[in-house]
Design a protein around this nucleic acid. Structure first.
Lengths: 255, 255
DNA sequence: GTGCGTACCAAATGTAAAATGGTTCGTCTC
DNA sequence: GAGACGAACCATTTTACATTTGGTACGCAC
Protein backbone atom coordinates (compact mmCIF):
# COMPACT_ATOMS: atom_id res chain seq x y z
CA UNK A 1 0.00 0.00 0.00
CA UNK A 2 3.01 2.18 -0.55
CA UNK A 3 2.24 3.51 -4.00
CA UNK A 4 -1.13 3.02 -5.58
CA UNK A 5 -0.41 3.87 -9.14
CA UNK A 6 1.08 7.23 -8.28
CA UNK A 7 0.65 8.91 -11.60
CA UNK A 8 -2.79 7.54 -12.32
CA UNK A 9 -6.00 9.42 -12.05
CA UNK A 10 -8.29 8.94 -9.12
CA UNK A 11 -10.41 6.34 -10.86
CA UNK A 12 -7.47 4.03 -11.45
CA UNK A 13 -6.21 4.56 -7.93
CA UNK A 14 -9.61 3.70 -6.48
CA UNK A 15 -9.75 0.64 -8.73
CA UNK A 16 -6.43 -0.66 -7.46
CA UNK A 17 -7.32 -0.02 -3.85
CA UNK A 18 -10.68 -1.75 -4.04
CA UNK A 19 -9.16 -4.66 -5.94
CA UNK A 20 -6.55 -5.00 -3.21
CA UNK A 21 -9.31 -4.85 -0.61
CA UNK A 22 -11.03 -7.79 -2.28
CA UNK A 23 -7.84 -9.79 -2.69
CA UNK A 24 -6.81 -9.24 0.89
CA UNK A 25 -10.13 -10.50 2.13
CA UNK A 26 -10.90 -8.08 4.91
CA UNK A 27 -14.57 -8.57 4.33
CA UNK A 28 -17.46 -10.05 6.30
CA UNK A 29 -18.30 -13.66 5.52
CA UNK A 30 -21.03 -12.63 3.08
CA UNK A 31 -18.48 -10.68 1.06
CA UNK A 32 -20.14 -7.34 1.58
CA UNK A 33 -18.13 -4.25 0.70
CA UNK A 34 -18.60 -0.81 2.24
CA UNK A 35 -21.19 1.40 0.61
CA UNK A 36 -20.18 3.65 -2.23
CA UNK A 37 -20.45 6.69 0.00
CA UNK A 38 -18.22 5.09 2.63
CA UNK A 39 -15.69 4.03 0.01
CA UNK A 40 -15.54 7.50 -1.48
CA UNK A 41 -14.81 8.89 1.95
CA UNK A 42 -12.24 6.22 2.88
CA UNK A 43 -10.40 6.45 -0.42
CA UNK A 44 -10.55 10.21 -0.44
CA UNK A 45 -12.13 10.55 -3.83
CA UNK A 46 -15.53 11.26 -5.29
CA UNK A 47 -18.35 8.82 -5.55
CA UNK A 48 -18.24 8.93 -9.34
CA UNK A 49 -14.68 7.60 -9.32
CA UNK A 50 -15.66 4.83 -6.91
CA UNK A 51 -18.51 3.86 -9.18
CA UNK A 52 -16.29 3.71 -12.24
CA UNK A 53 -13.91 1.40 -10.41
CA UNK A 54 -16.79 -0.80 -9.27
CA UNK A 55 -18.08 -0.97 -12.84
CA UNK A 56 -14.77 -2.44 -13.96
CA UNK A 57 -14.65 -4.98 -11.15
CA UNK A 58 -18.25 -5.97 -11.79
CA UNK A 59 -17.47 -6.55 -15.47
CA UNK A 60 -14.57 -8.73 -14.42
CA UNK A 61 -16.95 -10.84 -12.38
CA UNK A 62 -15.25 -10.09 -9.08
CA UNK A 63 -18.24 -8.42 -7.49
CA UNK A 64 -21.89 -7.64 -8.00
CA UNK A 65 -24.07 -4.72 -6.98
CA UNK A 66 -27.74 -4.34 -6.33
CA UNK A 67 -29.68 -1.18 -5.78
CA UNK A 68 -30.96 -0.91 -2.23
CA UNK A 69 -28.89 -3.89 -1.13
CA UNK A 70 -25.20 -3.24 -1.45
CA UNK A 71 -21.98 -4.33 -3.16
CA UNK A 72 -20.72 -7.88 -2.66
CA UNK A 73 -17.63 -9.83 -3.67
CA UNK A 74 -18.21 -12.92 -5.80
CA UNK A 75 -21.32 -13.77 -7.79
CA UNK A 76 -24.93 -13.33 -6.67
CA UNK A 77 -27.25 -16.08 -5.52
CA UNK A 78 -30.76 -16.38 -6.85
CA UNK A 79 -32.56 -17.99 -3.93
CA UNK A 80 -35.47 -20.34 -4.61
CA UNK A 81 -36.75 -20.09 -1.08
CA UNK A 82 -40.26 -21.41 -1.58
CA UNK A 83 -39.26 -24.62 -3.28
CA UNK A 84 -36.27 -25.08 -1.00
CA UNK A 85 -38.50 -24.77 2.06
CA UNK A 86 -40.67 -27.67 0.94
CA UNK A 87 -37.73 -30.09 0.92
CA UNK A 88 -35.46 -28.50 3.51
CA UNK A 89 -36.31 -31.01 6.19
CA UNK A 90 -35.56 -34.03 4.02
CA UNK A 91 -32.13 -33.12 2.70
CA UNK A 92 -28.74 -34.10 3.99
CA UNK A 93 -25.30 -33.17 2.79
CA UNK A 94 -24.79 -36.26 0.65
CA UNK A 95 -28.14 -35.81 -1.08
CA UNK A 96 -26.96 -32.34 -2.03
CA UNK A 97 -23.77 -33.73 -3.53
CA UNK A 98 -25.71 -36.37 -5.47
CA UNK A 99 -27.84 -33.64 -6.98
CA UNK A 100 -24.82 -31.49 -7.80
CA UNK A 101 -23.26 -34.47 -9.59
CA UNK A 102 -26.23 -34.47 -11.89
CA UNK A 103 -26.65 -30.78 -12.61
CA UNK A 104 -23.21 -29.23 -12.60
CA UNK A 105 -21.35 -31.55 -14.99
CA UNK A 106 -24.05 -30.89 -17.57
CA UNK A 107 -23.71 -27.14 -16.97
CA UNK A 108 -19.95 -27.40 -17.46
CA UNK A 109 -20.47 -29.31 -20.69
CA UNK A 110 -22.83 -26.62 -21.98
CA UNK A 111 -20.32 -23.95 -20.97
CA UNK A 112 -17.83 -25.59 -23.29
CA UNK A 113 -20.22 -24.87 -26.15
CA UNK A 114 -21.37 -21.39 -25.25
CA UNK A 115 -18.78 -19.62 -23.12
CA UNK A 116 -17.26 -16.50 -24.64
CA UNK A 117 -13.64 -15.54 -24.22
CA UNK A 118 -14.73 -12.98 -21.65
CA UNK A 119 -16.58 -15.69 -19.73
CA UNK A 120 -13.43 -17.78 -19.59
CA UNK A 121 -11.47 -14.78 -18.32
CA UNK A 122 -13.97 -14.26 -15.54
CA UNK A 123 -13.84 -17.93 -14.61
CA UNK A 124 -10.06 -17.83 -14.40
CA UNK A 125 -10.17 -14.76 -12.17
CA UNK A 126 -12.60 -16.43 -9.79
CA UNK A 127 -10.49 -19.58 -9.68
CA UNK A 128 -7.45 -17.47 -8.84
CA UNK A 129 -9.29 -15.77 -6.01
CA UNK A 130 -10.37 -19.15 -4.61
CA UNK A 131 -6.80 -20.33 -4.81
CA UNK A 132 -5.54 -17.28 -2.96
CA UNK A 133 -8.24 -17.38 -0.29
CA UNK A 134 -6.84 -16.91 3.19
CA UNK A 135 -9.40 -19.01 5.03
CA UNK A 136 -12.25 -21.40 4.36
CA UNK A 137 -14.91 -18.68 4.39
CA UNK A 138 -13.28 -16.86 1.49
CA UNK A 139 -12.56 -20.07 -0.33
CA UNK A 140 -16.23 -20.94 -0.19
CA UNK A 141 -17.16 -17.43 -1.31
CA UNK A 142 -15.02 -17.66 -4.45
CA UNK A 143 -15.67 -21.33 -5.11
CA UNK A 144 -19.36 -20.57 -4.90
CA UNK A 145 -18.93 -17.63 -7.26
CA UNK A 146 -17.12 -19.86 -9.75
CA UNK A 147 -19.79 -22.54 -9.72
CA UNK A 148 -22.54 -19.92 -9.94
CA UNK A 149 -20.99 -18.34 -12.99
CA UNK A 150 -20.69 -21.75 -14.62
CA UNK A 151 -24.38 -22.20 -13.94
CA UNK A 152 -25.25 -18.87 -15.56
CA UNK A 153 -23.15 -19.01 -18.72
CA UNK A 154 -25.14 -21.66 -20.63
CA UNK A 155 -28.31 -19.55 -20.33
CA UNK A 156 -30.50 -22.59 -19.80
CA UNK A 157 -33.35 -21.40 -17.58
CA UNK A 158 -34.29 -24.84 -16.28
CA UNK A 159 -30.83 -26.04 -15.37
CA UNK A 160 -30.17 -22.61 -13.93
CA UNK A 161 -33.30 -22.86 -11.78
CA UNK A 162 -32.29 -26.34 -10.67
CA UNK A 163 -28.90 -24.97 -9.68
CA UNK A 164 -30.57 -22.14 -7.79
CA UNK A 165 -32.60 -24.65 -5.85
CA UNK A 166 -29.43 -26.55 -5.05
CA UNK A 167 -27.61 -23.38 -4.09
CA UNK A 168 -30.42 -22.33 -1.78
CA UNK A 169 -30.65 -25.69 -0.07
CA UNK A 170 -26.89 -25.74 0.30
CA UNK A 171 -26.98 -22.33 1.95
CA UNK A 172 -29.58 -23.50 4.43
CA UNK A 173 -27.53 -26.59 5.18
CA UNK A 174 -24.30 -24.67 5.37
CA UNK A 175 -23.79 -25.02 9.08
CA UNK A 176 -22.41 -28.52 8.59
CA UNK A 177 -21.37 -28.36 4.94
CA UNK A 178 -19.03 -25.50 5.68
CA UNK A 179 -17.64 -27.06 8.80
CA UNK A 180 -16.66 -30.28 7.08
CA UNK A 181 -15.06 -28.56 4.14
CA UNK A 182 -13.03 -26.44 6.50
CA UNK A 183 -11.44 -29.59 7.82
CA UNK A 184 -10.10 -30.50 4.43
CA UNK A 185 -8.57 -27.16 3.60
CA UNK A 186 -5.24 -28.95 3.06
CA UNK A 187 -6.52 -30.19 -0.26
CA UNK A 188 -7.04 -26.69 -1.56
CA UNK A 189 -4.26 -27.20 -4.08
CA UNK A 190 -6.11 -30.19 -5.48
CA UNK A 191 -9.27 -28.16 -5.80
CA UNK A 192 -7.40 -25.46 -7.69
CA UNK A 193 -5.98 -27.94 -10.15
CA UNK A 194 -9.45 -29.33 -10.72
CA UNK A 195 -10.86 -25.86 -11.23
CA UNK A 196 -8.21 -25.21 -13.83
CA UNK A 197 -8.93 -28.46 -15.62
CA UNK A 198 -12.61 -27.55 -15.80
CA UNK A 199 -11.87 -24.09 -17.18
CA UNK A 200 -9.26 -25.38 -19.60
CA UNK A 201 -11.76 -27.85 -21.01
CA UNK A 202 -14.34 -25.09 -21.37
CA UNK A 203 -11.75 -22.90 -23.05
CA UNK A 204 -10.88 -25.73 -25.42
CA UNK A 205 -14.60 -26.21 -26.14
CA UNK A 206 -14.32 -29.84 -25.11
CA UNK A 207 -17.73 -30.59 -23.62
CA UNK A 208 -16.96 -34.15 -22.59
CA UNK A 209 -13.75 -33.14 -20.88
CA UNK A 210 -15.53 -30.32 -19.05
CA UNK A 211 -18.23 -32.70 -17.89
CA UNK A 212 -15.67 -35.24 -16.73
CA UNK A 213 -13.57 -32.61 -14.95
CA UNK A 214 -16.57 -31.28 -13.08
CA UNK A 215 -17.65 -34.80 -12.13
CA UNK A 216 -14.16 -35.48 -10.86
CA UNK A 217 -14.15 -32.27 -8.85
CA UNK A 218 -17.49 -32.97 -7.23
CA UNK A 219 -16.48 -36.56 -6.51
CA UNK A 220 -13.41 -35.28 -4.66
CA UNK A 221 -15.56 -32.89 -2.67
CA UNK A 222 -17.98 -35.70 -1.85
CA UNK A 223 -15.20 -38.01 -0.73
CA UNK A 224 -13.68 -35.32 1.47
CA UNK A 225 -17.04 -34.55 2.99
CA UNK A 226 -17.76 -38.19 3.67
CA UNK A 227 -14.34 -38.72 5.19
CA UNK A 228 -14.78 -35.71 7.43
CA UNK A 229 -18.22 -36.84 8.51
CA UNK A 230 -16.88 -40.28 9.34
CA UNK A 231 -14.05 -38.85 11.40
CA UNK A 232 -16.36 -36.64 13.39
CA UNK A 233 -18.55 -39.64 14.05
CA UNK A 234 -21.66 -38.37 12.37
CA UNK A 235 -24.30 -40.85 11.39
CA UNK A 236 -24.09 -42.02 7.81
CA UNK A 237 -27.04 -41.25 5.67
CA UNK A 238 -28.80 -43.88 3.66
CA UNK A 239 -26.88 -42.68 0.66
CA UNK A 240 -23.59 -43.72 2.16
CA UNK A 241 -24.77 -47.14 3.13
CA UNK A 242 -26.37 -47.88 -0.18
CA UNK A 243 -23.18 -47.23 -2.07
CA UNK A 244 -21.32 -50.03 -0.29
CA UNK A 245 -24.25 -52.39 -0.07
CA UNK A 246 -24.30 -55.54 -2.10
CA UNK A 247 -27.22 -57.05 -3.89
CA UNK A 248 -28.84 -58.41 -0.78
CA UNK A 249 -30.03 -54.92 0.09
CA UNK A 250 -32.25 -55.17 -2.92
CA UNK A 251 -34.64 -57.15 -0.79
CA UNK A 252 -35.17 -54.44 1.75
CA UNK A 253 -38.76 -53.63 2.44
CA UNK A 254 -40.46 -50.41 1.62
CA UNK A 255 -40.66 -48.18 4.64
CA UNK B 1 -81.33 -18.47 1.18
CA UNK B 2 -84.84 -19.51 2.00
CA UNK B 3 -84.16 -22.56 4.10
CA UNK B 4 -80.64 -23.58 4.86
CA UNK B 5 -81.03 -27.01 6.32
CA UNK B 6 -83.77 -26.03 8.66
CA UNK B 7 -83.39 -28.70 11.26
CA UNK B 8 -79.57 -28.82 11.21
CA UNK B 9 -77.22 -27.42 13.79
CA UNK B 10 -75.30 -24.24 13.13
CA UNK B 11 -72.17 -26.00 11.94
CA UNK B 12 -74.02 -27.83 9.17
CA UNK B 13 -75.89 -24.69 8.21
CA UNK B 14 -72.65 -22.73 7.97
CA UNK B 15 -71.12 -25.54 5.93
CA UNK B 16 -73.96 -25.47 3.42
CA UNK B 17 -73.91 -21.71 3.12
CA UNK B 18 -70.17 -21.50 2.57
CA UNK B 19 -70.27 -24.37 0.09
CA UNK B 20 -72.98 -22.53 -1.81
CA UNK B 21 -70.88 -19.39 -1.71
CA UNK B 22 -67.98 -21.23 -3.34
CA UNK B 23 -70.14 -22.96 -5.94
CA UNK B 24 -71.83 -19.73 -6.89
CA UNK B 25 -68.46 -18.11 -7.50
CA UNK B 26 -69.10 -14.64 -6.12
CA UNK B 27 -65.47 -14.33 -5.17
CA UNK B 28 -62.59 -12.04 -6.10
CA UNK B 29 -60.34 -13.24 -8.89
CA UNK B 30 -57.85 -14.80 -6.48
CA UNK B 31 -60.60 -16.91 -4.92
CA UNK B 32 -60.29 -15.26 -1.56
CA UNK B 33 -63.11 -15.85 0.92
CA UNK B 34 -64.12 -13.47 3.71
CA UNK B 35 -62.20 -13.83 6.94
CA UNK B 36 -63.46 -16.21 9.58
CA UNK B 37 -64.59 -13.31 11.75
CA UNK B 38 -66.52 -11.74 8.87
CA UNK B 39 -68.12 -15.07 8.00
CA UNK B 40 -69.20 -15.67 11.57
CA UNK B 41 -70.88 -12.28 11.60
CA UNK B 42 -72.50 -12.66 8.17
CA UNK B 43 -73.78 -16.17 8.86
CA UNK B 44 -74.93 -15.27 12.33
CA UNK B 45 -73.04 -18.00 14.09
CA UNK B 46 -69.94 -18.40 16.15
CA UNK B 47 -66.42 -18.53 14.80
CA UNK B 48 -65.97 -22.09 15.98
CA UNK B 49 -68.83 -23.24 13.78
CA UNK B 50 -67.34 -21.39 10.82
CA UNK B 51 -64.00 -23.05 11.42
CA UNK B 52 -65.55 -26.50 11.62
CA UNK B 53 -67.27 -25.92 8.32
CA UNK B 54 -64.01 -24.70 6.77
CA UNK B 55 -62.20 -27.76 8.08
CA UNK B 56 -64.62 -29.97 6.18
CA UNK B 57 -64.32 -27.96 2.99
CA UNK B 58 -60.54 -27.93 3.26
CA UNK B 59 -60.51 -31.70 3.70
CA UNK B 60 -62.67 -31.94 0.60
CA UNK B 61 -60.10 -29.93 -1.30
CA UNK B 62 -62.54 -27.15 -2.09
CA UNK B 63 -60.45 -24.51 -0.32
CA UNK B 64 -57.19 -23.99 1.50
CA UNK B 65 -56.24 -21.79 4.42
CA UNK B 66 -53.05 -20.20 5.61
CA UNK B 67 -52.38 -18.46 8.85
CA UNK B 68 -51.86 -14.74 8.42
CA UNK B 69 -52.89 -14.94 4.77
CA UNK B 70 -56.50 -15.95 4.42
CA UNK B 71 -58.88 -18.58 3.08
CA UNK B 72 -58.99 -19.31 -0.64
CA UNK B 73 -61.19 -21.40 -2.88
CA UNK B 74 -59.53 -24.10 -4.90
CA UNK B 75 -56.22 -25.77 -4.18
CA UNK B 76 -52.89 -24.13 -3.32
CA UNK B 77 -50.38 -23.88 -6.13
CA UNK B 78 -47.38 -26.15 -5.89
CA UNK B 79 -44.01 -24.39 -5.59
CA UNK B 80 -42.82 -26.22 -8.69
CA UNK B 81 -45.73 -24.77 -10.65
CA UNK B 82 -44.88 -21.26 -9.56
CA UNK B 83 -41.22 -21.71 -10.38
CA UNK B 84 -42.12 -23.21 -13.73
CA UNK B 85 -44.35 -20.25 -14.48
CA UNK B 86 -41.49 -17.79 -13.85
CA UNK B 87 -39.25 -19.45 -16.44
CA UNK B 88 -41.93 -20.70 -18.83
CA UNK B 89 -41.43 -17.84 -21.26
CA UNK B 90 -37.70 -18.41 -21.58
CA UNK B 91 -37.66 -22.13 -22.27
CA UNK B 92 -37.63 -23.95 -25.55
CA UNK B 93 -37.80 -27.65 -26.25
CA UNK B 94 -34.06 -28.11 -26.62
CA UNK B 95 -33.39 -26.37 -23.31
CA UNK B 96 -35.71 -28.90 -21.72
CA UNK B 97 -33.79 -31.78 -23.25
CA UNK B 98 -30.49 -30.30 -22.13
CA UNK B 99 -31.80 -30.18 -18.58
CA UNK B 100 -33.12 -33.73 -18.79
CA UNK B 101 -29.70 -34.90 -19.99
CA UNK B 102 -28.31 -33.60 -16.74
CA UNK B 103 -30.87 -34.77 -14.23
CA UNK B 104 -32.21 -38.06 -15.49
CA UNK B 105 -28.97 -39.99 -16.09
CA UNK B 106 -27.97 -39.24 -12.52
CA UNK B 107 -31.38 -40.41 -11.30
CA UNK B 108 -30.97 -43.63 -13.27
CA UNK B 109 -27.54 -44.16 -11.75
CA UNK B 110 -28.94 -43.71 -8.25
CA UNK B 111 -31.75 -46.11 -9.09
CA UNK B 112 -29.13 -48.76 -9.77
CA UNK B 113 -28.00 -48.42 -6.17
CA UNK B 114 -31.34 -48.17 -4.41
CA UNK B 115 -34.10 -49.77 -6.44
CA UNK B 116 -35.84 -52.71 -4.81
CA UNK B 117 -36.97 -55.77 -6.71
CA UNK B 118 -40.50 -54.40 -6.54
CA UNK B 119 -39.32 -51.14 -8.06
CA UNK B 120 -37.75 -53.00 -10.98
CA UNK B 121 -40.95 -54.96 -11.49
CA UNK B 122 -42.93 -51.72 -11.67
CA UNK B 123 -40.45 -50.25 -14.12
CA UNK B 124 -40.73 -53.28 -16.39
CA UNK B 125 -44.51 -53.08 -16.26
CA UNK B 126 -44.47 -49.42 -17.30
CA UNK B 127 -42.01 -50.11 -20.11
CA UNK B 128 -44.26 -52.89 -21.41
CA UNK B 129 -47.30 -50.65 -21.28
CA UNK B 130 -45.43 -47.98 -23.23
CA UNK B 131 -44.36 -50.54 -25.78
CA UNK B 132 -47.91 -51.73 -26.22
CA UNK B 133 -49.38 -48.26 -26.52
CA UNK B 134 -51.57 -47.88 -29.55
CA UNK B 135 -50.98 -44.22 -30.33
CA UNK B 136 -48.35 -41.63 -29.54
CA UNK B 137 -50.36 -39.80 -26.89
CA UNK B 138 -50.81 -43.03 -25.03
CA UNK B 139 -47.12 -43.80 -25.39
CA UNK B 140 -46.20 -40.42 -23.93
CA UNK B 141 -48.42 -41.16 -20.94
CA UNK B 142 -46.62 -44.39 -20.07
CA UNK B 143 -43.20 -43.08 -20.98
CA UNK B 144 -43.81 -40.15 -18.64
CA UNK B 145 -44.87 -42.51 -15.89
CA UNK B 146 -41.72 -44.55 -16.37
CA UNK B 147 -39.44 -41.53 -16.12
CA UNK B 148 -41.36 -40.19 -13.13
CA UNK B 149 -40.93 -43.47 -11.29
CA UNK B 150 -37.22 -43.43 -12.01
CA UNK B 151 -37.14 -39.95 -10.53
CA UNK B 152 -38.91 -41.05 -7.36
CA UNK B 153 -37.05 -44.27 -6.59
CA UNK B 154 -33.71 -42.79 -5.44
CA UNK B 155 -35.50 -40.82 -2.69
CA UNK B 156 -33.31 -37.79 -3.26
CA UNK B 157 -35.53 -34.79 -2.46
CA UNK B 158 -33.50 -32.27 -4.44
CA UNK B 159 -33.16 -34.25 -7.65
CA UNK B 160 -36.78 -35.22 -7.28
CA UNK B 161 -37.79 -31.57 -6.98
CA UNK B 162 -35.61 -30.67 -9.96
CA UNK B 163 -37.28 -33.38 -12.02
CA UNK B 164 -40.67 -32.16 -10.84
CA UNK B 165 -39.82 -28.69 -12.09
CA UNK B 166 -38.60 -30.14 -15.36
CA UNK B 167 -41.67 -32.28 -15.82
CA UNK B 168 -43.98 -29.33 -15.16
CA UNK B 169 -42.18 -27.15 -17.67
CA UNK B 170 -42.16 -29.99 -20.18
CA UNK B 171 -45.90 -30.53 -19.93
CA UNK B 172 -46.57 -26.82 -20.35
CA UNK B 173 -44.31 -26.67 -23.38
CA UNK B 174 -45.87 -29.76 -24.91
CA UNK B 175 -49.32 -28.36 -24.35
CA UNK B 176 -48.48 -24.99 -25.86
CA UNK B 177 -46.94 -26.42 -28.99
CA UNK B 178 -49.17 -29.45 -29.18
CA UNK B 179 -46.06 -31.38 -30.01
CA UNK B 180 -45.84 -35.09 -30.41
CA UNK B 181 -43.00 -37.02 -31.84
CA UNK B 182 -43.63 -38.52 -35.20
CA UNK B 183 -43.08 -42.05 -34.10
CA UNK B 184 -42.43 -44.59 -36.72
CA UNK B 185 -42.57 -48.24 -35.99
CA UNK B 186 -38.81 -48.28 -35.97
CA UNK B 187 -38.41 -45.56 -33.38
CA UNK B 188 -40.91 -47.22 -31.07
CA UNK B 189 -38.88 -50.40 -31.11
CA UNK B 190 -35.72 -48.43 -30.48
CA UNK B 191 -37.28 -46.64 -27.53
CA UNK B 192 -38.41 -49.90 -26.03
CA UNK B 193 -34.97 -51.42 -26.36
CA UNK B 194 -33.49 -48.38 -24.69
CA UNK B 195 -36.00 -48.59 -21.87
CA UNK B 196 -35.07 -52.20 -21.37
CA UNK B 197 -31.38 -51.42 -21.33
CA UNK B 198 -31.95 -48.80 -18.65
CA UNK B 199 -33.99 -51.15 -16.50
CA UNK B 200 -31.60 -54.05 -17.02
CA UNK B 201 -28.72 -51.89 -15.84
CA UNK B 202 -30.72 -50.83 -12.78
CA UNK B 203 -31.60 -54.44 -12.09
CA UNK B 204 -27.94 -55.40 -12.41
CA UNK B 205 -27.02 -52.56 -10.00
CA UNK B 206 -24.66 -51.15 -12.61
CA UNK B 207 -24.85 -47.41 -12.02
CA UNK B 208 -22.56 -46.41 -14.85
CA UNK B 209 -24.44 -48.54 -17.36
CA UNK B 210 -27.76 -47.09 -16.19
CA UNK B 211 -26.42 -43.57 -16.55
CA UNK B 212 -25.08 -44.30 -20.01
CA UNK B 213 -28.28 -46.00 -21.12
CA UNK B 214 -30.39 -43.07 -19.98
CA UNK B 215 -28.05 -40.61 -21.68
CA UNK B 216 -28.30 -42.63 -24.86
CA UNK B 217 -32.09 -42.72 -24.64
CA UNK B 218 -32.38 -38.98 -24.11
CA UNK B 219 -29.93 -38.30 -26.92
CA UNK B 220 -32.11 -40.33 -29.26
CA UNK B 221 -35.17 -38.42 -28.12
CA UNK B 222 -33.35 -35.13 -28.66
CA UNK B 223 -32.24 -36.11 -32.15
CA UNK B 224 -35.76 -37.20 -33.10
CA UNK B 225 -37.18 -34.04 -31.65
CA UNK B 226 -34.72 -31.88 -33.53
CA UNK B 227 -35.46 -33.72 -36.74
CA UNK B 228 -39.16 -33.30 -36.16
CA UNK B 229 -38.71 -29.58 -35.54
CA UNK B 230 -36.67 -29.22 -38.67
CA UNK B 231 -39.35 -30.89 -40.75
CA UNK B 232 -42.09 -28.71 -39.33
CA UNK B 233 -39.99 -25.66 -40.00
CA UNK B 234 -39.57 -24.47 -36.44
CA UNK B 235 -36.78 -22.05 -35.82
CA UNK B 236 -33.65 -23.50 -34.30
CA UNK B 237 -32.70 -22.17 -30.94
CA UNK B 238 -29.27 -20.90 -30.12
CA UNK B 239 -28.61 -24.26 -28.55
CA UNK B 240 -28.74 -25.93 -31.91
CA UNK B 241 -26.45 -23.50 -33.59
CA UNK B 242 -23.91 -23.46 -30.83
CA UNK B 243 -23.46 -27.18 -31.03
CA UNK B 244 -22.16 -26.99 -34.55
CA UNK B 245 -20.23 -23.79 -34.15
CA UNK B 246 -16.47 -23.87 -34.39
CA UNK B 247 -13.95 -22.07 -32.29
CA UNK B 248 -14.26 -18.80 -34.11
CA UNK B 249 -17.51 -18.08 -32.33
CA UNK B 250 -15.47 -17.78 -29.20
CA UNK B 251 -14.30 -14.41 -30.37
CA UNK B 252 -17.70 -12.95 -30.76
CA UNK B 253 -18.06 -9.64 -29.01
CA UNK B 254 -20.05 -8.93 -25.94
CA UNK B 255 -23.41 -7.59 -26.83
C1' DG C 1 -12.57 17.95 -19.42
C1' DT C 2 -11.81 16.07 -14.74
C1' DG C 3 -12.92 16.07 -10.13
C1' DC C 4 -16.14 16.80 -6.47
C1' DG C 5 -20.33 17.60 -4.13
C1' DT C 6 -25.40 17.79 -3.88
C1' DA C 7 -29.73 16.35 -4.82
C1' DC C 8 -33.02 13.19 -6.27
C1' DC C 9 -34.86 8.50 -8.05
C1' DA C 10 -35.57 3.45 -7.67
C1' DA C 11 -34.97 -0.66 -5.27
C1' DA C 12 -34.24 -3.23 -1.08
C1' DT C 13 -34.19 -3.51 3.86
C1' DG C 14 -35.89 -3.11 8.75
C1' DT C 15 -39.44 -2.03 11.81
C1' DA C 16 -43.94 -1.57 13.70
C1' DA C 17 -48.78 -2.06 13.34
C1' DA C 18 -52.66 -4.45 11.60
C1' DA C 19 -54.85 -8.49 9.68
C1' DT C 20 -55.68 -13.41 9.68
C1' DG C 21 -55.88 -18.18 10.79
C1' DG C 22 -54.96 -21.34 14.98
C1' DT C 23 -55.87 -22.21 19.82
C1' DT C 24 -57.58 -22.05 24.49
C1' DC C 25 -60.61 -20.79 28.07
C1' DG C 26 -64.96 -19.33 30.34
C1' DT C 27 -69.90 -18.81 30.31
C1' DC C 28 -74.34 -19.72 28.84
C1' DT C 29 -78.31 -22.60 27.34
C1' DC C 30 -80.74 -26.67 26.70
C1' DG D 1 -72.76 -33.00 29.77
C1' DA D 2 -72.96 -31.35 24.84
C1' DG D 3 -73.36 -27.58 21.95
C1' DA D 4 -73.03 -22.60 21.15
C1' DC D 5 -71.06 -18.21 21.70
C1' DG D 6 -67.70 -14.83 22.90
C1' DA D 7 -63.34 -13.23 24.41
C1' DA D 8 -58.54 -13.45 24.70
C1' DC D 9 -54.11 -14.86 23.17
C1' DC D 10 -50.49 -16.88 19.83
C1' DA D 11 -48.06 -17.45 15.26
C1' DT D 12 -47.81 -16.08 10.68
C1' DT D 13 -48.44 -12.91 7.04
C1' DT D 14 -49.39 -8.62 5.06
C1' DT D 15 -49.17 -3.63 4.93
C1' DA D 16 -47.27 0.99 5.60
C1' DC D 17 -43.49 3.85 6.56
C1' DA D 18 -38.90 5.32 7.32
C1' DT D 19 -34.08 4.16 6.25
C1' DT D 20 -30.42 2.47 3.52
C1' DT D 21 -28.16 1.78 -0.84
C1' DG D 22 -27.03 1.72 -5.58
C1' DG D 23 -28.34 4.53 -10.01
C1' DT D 24 -28.55 9.05 -12.17
C1' DA D 25 -28.56 13.92 -13.18
C1' DC D 26 -27.21 18.63 -12.32
C1' DG D 27 -24.15 22.45 -10.71
C1' DC D 28 -19.74 24.22 -9.36
C1' DA D 29 -14.52 24.58 -9.20
C1' DC D 30 -10.02 23.99 -11.08
Amino acid sequence: MTSDGDFSDNTTRALNQIRRMIEKGNLPSDGRLPTERELSEKLGCGRRQVRRALEVLEAEGLLWRRQGKGTFAGQPRRPATEMAATIADKVDTLAIMEARMGVEPQLAALCARRATAEDVDRLRLLAERAHGASDSDYWELWDGALHRLIARIPDNPILSAAFDLLDTVRMDENWQHDRHLARTLKTKVVYHEQHQRIIDAIDARDADAARAAMTDHLQTLTDDLRRSMRETGEVHSFATEARITDKTSKRRLKK
